[in-house]
């Protein structure tokens, strides 16, 4: 444990905390008593107002106390553990590794590495959206003739959901290039000299591996969405003369997709984070760059900085999800339903 340095700031915090928190707890106790008097024994008007006021004081006091406690904790860790600050949050190394020292726009190895993470997951997410829908629709195909296809889809999902991501990535990225499978040779799509949207062979294989992994997860998400649309919607669509495929396309899938946006976003955040795993097979993305910097400089701030970048990009995604869900609800549902 670090020694707690009693600075003036700390003292002020401490005093505020010592006052606010017990005050809140006392107000809570006092308020409950007044409330009991009003409710149980039909007490006077004055008690009712007292109870209400006490509730407010209680909430304010306890909230304030809790916030001060957290602030106090962070502050004391920060000022008390200078080595922690230096190891994880050295401004010098943060700035240096991100390239901020050399001016804006940033051009350091980590920033560029992280940009590669972003490019990889944007492309992978788009592919996952399409591929997973194909898998989900195949699993839902009717008829005996389609049975082998359905089994294939089920096997695919079972395998790639069960395999640890790092194993899939390892096998795909190290294994495929040394096979003579179609597409892997010189001049072919996944060949050693391949290039697609600015990605080289290793990066393309990395994207391929991520799509395989997350396609399995997202296919299941889609499928649960499709199943959650009541069968009567299909009956109504087919009753209108829409074919099975049209019913799926215009009636079932649009409703399913809306319902699965939140779990879909979870998987996408997972995918964003897992782009860092591709460094094991030689993709020089953000983590590779950051750990490289850390090793050379004996300081972990570059990795912390990269971590912060990953956190920051998930936040707009989360807000966007909330917004989409809310808008969907507002548009289609009665205000008071």
């Amino acid at each position: 444990m670090a020694a707690l340095r009693a600075s003036h700031t700390n003292n002020n915090f401490l005093v505020a905390f010592v006052v606010a928190f017990p005050l809140g707890v006392f107000a809570l106790w006092f308020g409950r008593r007044a409330e009991t008097r009003v409710v149980d024994r039909d007490g006077p008007e004055k008690d009712e107002q007292l109870a209400r006021a006490a509730r407010r004081v209680a909430v304010a006091g306890i909230t304030l106390g809790a916030m001060l406690a957290i602030g106090l904790g962070i502050w004391s860790a920060w000022t008390g553990l200078e080595d922690v600050q230096e190891i994880f949050f050295s401004p010098e190394h943060l700035g240096d590794s991100a390239g901020l020292v050399s001016g804006w726009p940033a051009s350091g190895p980590i920033f560029e590495g992280f940009l590669l993470n972003v490019k990889i997951f944007v492309v992978a997410e788009i592919l996952v959206l399409v591929w997973a829908l194909v898998v989900a629709l195949v699993r839902d195909m009717p008829g005996r003739a389609a049975a082998p296809l359905r089994w294939l889809a089920i096997a695919y999902v079972d395998i790639f959901r069960g395999l640890p991501a790092i194993i899939t990535i390892y096998l795909v990225m190290f294994g495929l290039p040394i096979t003579q499978l179609p597409g892997m040779k010189e001049g072919e799509f996944f060949g050693p000299d391949a290039s697609f949207l600015g990605f080289d062979q290793v990066e393309m294989l990395g994207i391929f591996a991520l799509v395989l992994i997350y396609g399995a997860y997202v296919a299941e998400v889609y499928r649960s969405g499709i199943e959650s649309v009541h069968w009567s919607q299909r009956a109504a669509a087919q009753g209108l003369g829409l074919s099975r495929g049209q019913s799926m396309r215009y009636v079932v899938v649009p409703q399913a997709v809306r319902r699965v946006i939140p779990p879909l976003m979870n998987d996408f955040i997972g995918l964003q984070k897992d782009t860092a795993l591709l460094n094991i097979a030689g993709v020089f993305e953000g983590f590779a760059a950051a750990s490289n910097y850390a090793n050379n400089n004996f300081n972990l701030s570059s990795v912390t900085g990269l971590g912060i970048c990953f956190i920051i990009i998930t936040i707009p995604m989360t807000r966007l999800t909330d917004y989409l869900v809310k808008r969907g609800r507002q548009r289609t549902q009665a205000a008071f339903a």
């Binding site: 919607q233 009956a235 109504a236 669509a237 009753g239 003369g241 409703q255 289609t332």
Partner: peptide
């Protein structure tokens, strides 16, 4: 067949989206 046959259900089954 269904082009010529309309059906209406107890639960309306309008498309909510």
């Amino acid at each position: 067949l269904r082009r010529d046959v309309g059906i209406v259900f107890q639960a309306y089954n309008l498309f909510p989206h």
